[in-house]
Nucleic acid binder design. Structure first.
Length: 939
RNA sequence: GCUCAAGUGGCGGAAUUGGUAGACGCGCUGGAUUCAAAAUCCAGUUCUUUCGGGAGUGUGGGUUCGAUUCCCACCUUGAGUACCA
């Protein structure tokens, strides 16, 4: 019987669906194991062969863990809110929900035919109201919480209010806005409701504030820092400008240290941890206050080098610094204003592109050095960023290159405070081993001691203190978009009010147009029914707004990362309508054991999700504070583009081997028109719908064929190198696709796709199939297996198990090939070998193994069969084929019994004729014998 | 600039508590089968060679009986990040 993958795969996919084979139970005596893929955004283009790579790896692991006796949770869903559906809606008027639904259908069909063991009963979609009800719920929890630094955790806002009522805010140690006023308990009780709410908003973990945001005029929305690449929007590459807007933000900065510390407790790739560490950007130093001469004002600066404070020869303020306008002298006013105006015009992008140009202006004002009492000039310079630290720096030109360049440029003195260091050419930034000089009480000290003493003195004298600064900014959470979660918020007297959780979800309203309104409001400004009746607790028509009982609802929506920051917890109990997930389910499943996805989410999704997990852990909702124990980044699969070469200005195409010396233009050819030997299907090319211009082209052949050129590039439609998994599955089958994707190379590595290579795994499957058949007849023998057959089986068990545990899937595919080649050579058709072999292979090739498993007479799905146990006795050897090396180079091998002693081995080897031939009469200086491994003769 | 990862045949890649470099597969060459093709099977395939061998894992050093593996310096490629005080 022929191996018919189409029939077999369809049948077993149907069987799994009908029998709910992979449905996970929420309680079991078995140990739990939770394997998860990052859920996809269902884009209109569907899947290409690069997408399933991670899913195949996680599926192999999930199936393996089932064989190993675990209760495995392996769900899948869709991150279904997002910009592409909205853009499509703007262009066509098609409701994003419809587009999304259609795309999900395609995704589901494509995923199903690859044979994943997903528990689809747990599917979630972030755009479903039943799901985003809980996104809104978490938002409300954040709103109702503040961060208590003394306890180092988030607490209910009620605990803060009760402190305010008893003692005001003097004793409160919270993460909050910078400009919080001080008040007593009496003050608090005298505040109006609105005043109280304004103050509380400065403490809440999600809060409304006027923030400078990255505004993208082309997209009509605010972008997060990680949505901007090289100064332009990640999506579309549009310019981005700074703009002040009232926005919801998340106080992720409260968790900066815990996000850093948590990295030590999780098994994530080092590069990913590094980039999170970088992103959080902890730096240790001190805050120092400089008085401004002649003003009742001071400049606070953050420095990582308080030890160099005697090297300060000027101060620099960011152009946006609020003090600038106060302290600037009349003579300098025009210059400074002109400078500020000039920098404001330059976009962030220009400023970044042009780091080399030094610019600035002197304010005419002076600061007083807190230790020496000397006057230092105050400058304005755009190399100081308003958004980092305090927006001001104490400039130490001898120790910082930027300060040095600035000082040189404007002819400001550069005092040297390092002993025996030449600073005539460049600043000296080395800390270790440098001795401080000309620095009063810090002179003659080395970095570490000077640093400590400087901070100690500042604290003693009251103008500075040791501080840790983080680069991590609070995350802007508002988006001016339609296709996202609405906020469960309405506005009363300008203050945000949370809609009670029992009335959730607040469902996205219908709109006529998906663009922002004409007066610049977000798209939800187009909705007619978008007001909250606080008596009936219903969304009602805007006409009814009276600001007494009916109020306007928030017009922004949540960002893309909202729904993806907790979905892995929701899978634990996806249909629960009363809780985000039941306590029992959360306690049982805990967190993800293995998470697989792309590294592009390093400082986005993976950071925000850790933040929400920690917050909900603080609130007692989740039982653990890290959501994924182990994470693997699968590498990207690149396409192998094909090129044809048109002679410049003609319609003649030269084969690859003939282009040298000719002036030719390479043109992408569709990769499906090229065979494994890089030969072009010329008729196919001429008749390709996109090649109408080349219909009558002339092709100059070499050796009677047209050879194309090849180049590895990112898979993309415009490069004609996209390979659709549907085509691969149709031609070679899902099992071959799965094996081949794993066989390409290490999971985490970027690697090119070349469809021609799939014939290797395809013929492997055919060979495997043949082992179970005698001609047309299915036939396995019940005879005892031979020693050689057992050896093949057991070395395969050992290797495959090790490989899966190490996520080295490419090498286990080779192992299977070797096993099948050996068993074919041995003409083995014994059940004792062939039955366990199927279980080993079934995580990789689930369909063919199910089929053969059932032909062997098994009634249950192979997915529940226990993993074969490796027995070392089958690999015991009595002899070893020793490599005999001379000066470290292997020259020949010699089969020797393993029980020989060192001396016996040496004697036998030395007497051997080949040894004598190698030595040509010389006497070796030394003979190294490592029993069981190698013999090396030196000399 | 900084941080990280990686450099092995024509190609994807294998081998690291230091011990036979190139497993497995693609491609290629030759052969069998076929009217022919596909499919299948067999043999060969790092380079070089005077057929005895010799050289060889980005480059140059080092440690070692022995280095793809460890150490130092450099080169190249890729990824992330960037005026962070």
């Amino acid at each position: 019987m022929q191996y018919n993958h189409q029939e077999i795969e369809k049948n077993w996919q149907k069987y799994w669906a009908e029998n709910q084979t992979f449905k996970a139970s929420n309680s079991s005596d078995l140990p739990k194991y939770y394997v998860l893929d990052m859920f996809p955004y269902p884009s209109g283009a569907g899947l290409h062969v690069g997408h399933p790579l991670g899913y195949i790896a996680s599926d192999i692991y999930a199936r393996y863990k089932r064989h190993k006796g675990f209760n495995v949770l392996h769900p899948q869903g869709y991150d279904s809110f997002g910009l592409p559906a909205e853009q499509y809606a703007i262009q066509t008027g098609q409701h994003p929900a419809k587009t999304t639904e259609a795309n999900i259908k395609t995704y589901r069909r494509q995923l199903d035919q690859i044979g994943f063991s997903f528990d689809w009963s747990r599917e979630v979609r972030t755009s479903n109201p039943e799901y985003y009800k809980w996104t809104q719920w978490i938002f409300i929890q954040l709103f109702n919480s503040w961060y208590n630094k003394d306890k180092d955790k988030a607490e209910d806002i009620a605990t803060l209010i009760s402190v305010f009522e008893k003692e005001g805010n003097a004793t409160v140690n919270a993460v909050c806005d910078d400009e919080v006023i001080s008040f007593t308990a009496e003050d608090w009780s005298g505040f109006t409701t609105i005043q109280k709410e304004e103050i509380l908003l400065q403490y809440r973990l999600t809060f409304l504030s006027d923030t400078e945001v990255n505004w993208c005029p082309a997209l009509g929305t605010v972008l997060a820092n990680d949505e901007i690449v090289n100064g332009v929007s990640e999506r579309g590459g549009h310019p981005v400008v700074r703009k002040k807007m009232t926005q919801w933000s998340m106080r992720i900065s409260a968790y900066a240290q815990r996000l850093l510390d948590g990295l030590n407790t999780i098994d994530w790739p080092q590069p990913l941890k590094d980039s999170q560490t970088n992103w959080i950007g902890r730096s240790q130093g001190a805050m120092v206050s400089f008085k401004v001469d002649g003003f009742d004002a001071k400049i606070d600066v953050f420095t990582t080098r308080p030890d160099t404070i005697f090297g300060v020869s000027f101060m620099t303020l960011a152009p946006e610094h609020e003090l600038v306008s106060q302290i600037v002298t009349d003579e300098q006013k025009d210059k400074v204003n002109a400078y500020i105006e000039a920098t404001a015009k330059r976009s962030e992008r220009d400023r970044m592109a042009d780091v080399k140009t030094i610019s600035g202006a002197f304010t005419g004002a002076y600061a007083i050095h807190p230790f020496s009492g000397e006057k230092v000039q105050i400058w304005v310079g755009d190399y100081v960023l308003a958004s980092y630290g305090t927006g001001a720096v104490m400039a130490v030109p001898c120790g910082d290159q930027r300060d040095y360049d600035f000082a040189k440029h404007f002819d400001i003195p550069i005092p040297n405070i390092f002993e025996g260091v030449d600073i005539s050419e460049a600043a000296h930034a080395d800390k270790e081993g440098t001795v401080i000089a000309n620095s009063d009480f810090l002179s003659r000290l080395k970095y570490k001691k000077a640093l400590k003493l400087a901070i100690y003195e500042m604290e003693k004298r009251g103008f500075g203190y040791g501080k840790i600064n983080y680069r991590l900014r609070d995350a802007v959470f508002s988006r001016q978009r339609y296709w996202g979660e609405p906020f469960p918020v309405y506005y009363k007297e300008g203050m945000p009010q949370m809609i009670d959780v029992k009335h959730l979800p607040v469902v996205l309203p219908e709109v006529e147009k998906y663009l922002p309104t004409e007066d610049g409001k977000p798209p939800l400004g187009n909705a007619d029914v978008w007001a909250w009746n606080s008596e009936t607790n219903k969304v009602v028509s805007n006409d009814l707004i009276d600001n007494e009982t009916v109020f306007p609802i928030e017009l922004n929506t949540m960002p893309g990362w909202a729904g993806s920051s907790y979905y892995f917890n929701r899978y634990m109990d996806p249909q629960n309508d009363t809780e985000i997930a039941s306590k029992e389910n959360l306690d049982y499943w805990q967190n993800i054991d293995l998470y697989i996805g792309g590294s592009e989410h390093a400082t986005g999704h993976l950071l925000y999700a850790r933040f929400w997990q920690k917050f909900l852990f603080d609130k007692g909702v989740f039982p653990v504070d890290e959501f994924a124990k182990k994470l693997i980044n699968q590498g990207m699969i690149l396409g192998t583009s094909a090129f044809v070469y048109r002679e410049e200005g003609t319609n003649r195409f030269f084969s690859k081997g003939l282009i040298e010396g000719k002036s030719v233009q390479p043109i992408h050819s569709d990769v499906s028109l090229v065979n494994a030997s890089d030969e072009l299907d010329i008729e196919g090319f001429k008749n390709h719908p996109l090649n109408v211009d080349f219909k009558n082209a002339e092709f100059i052949l070499e050796n009677e064929v047209y050879k194309v050129g090849r180049e590895v590039e990112k898979m993309s439609k415009s490069k004609f190198n996209v390979v659709n998994p549907d085509d691969i599955v149709a031609e070679y089958g899902a099992d071959a696709l799965r094996l081949f994707e794993m066989f390409l190379g290490p999971l985490e590595q970027t690697k090119p796709w070349k469809t021609s290579g799939i014939s290797g795994v395809s013929s492997f499957l055919k060979k495997l199939w043949k082992l179970y058949f005698n001609g047309e007849q299915f036939e396995v023998s019940e005879e005892k297996a031979t020693k050689d057959e057992l050896k093949t089986l057991h070395k395969t068990i050992k290797k495959v198990e090790e490989d899966i545990e190490n996520f080295s899937f490419n090498t286990s595919v080779s192992t299977f090939m070797i096993a099948v080649n050996e068993l074919t050579a041995l003409k083995c058709n014994k059940r004792e070998i062939l039955e366990p072999l199927l279980v080993l292979l079934s995580p990789y090739a689930p369909h063919i193994t199910e089929e053969l498993w059932s032909l062997l007479g098994n009634n249950e799905s192979i997915s529940t069969a226990p993993f074969p146990v490796f027995e070392p006795k089958n690999l015991l050897e009595t002899a070893k084929n020793y490599p005999i090396s001379f000066n470290g180079k292997m020259r020949f091998t010699l089969e020797l019994p393993l029980d020989l002693s060192k001396e016996e081995i040496e004697k036998t080897v030395m007497e051997h004729e080949k040894t004598q031939a190698q030595l040509q009469g010389r006497t070796p200086k030394k003979v190294i014998v490592v029993p069981g491994k190698i013999v090396n003769i030196v000399g």
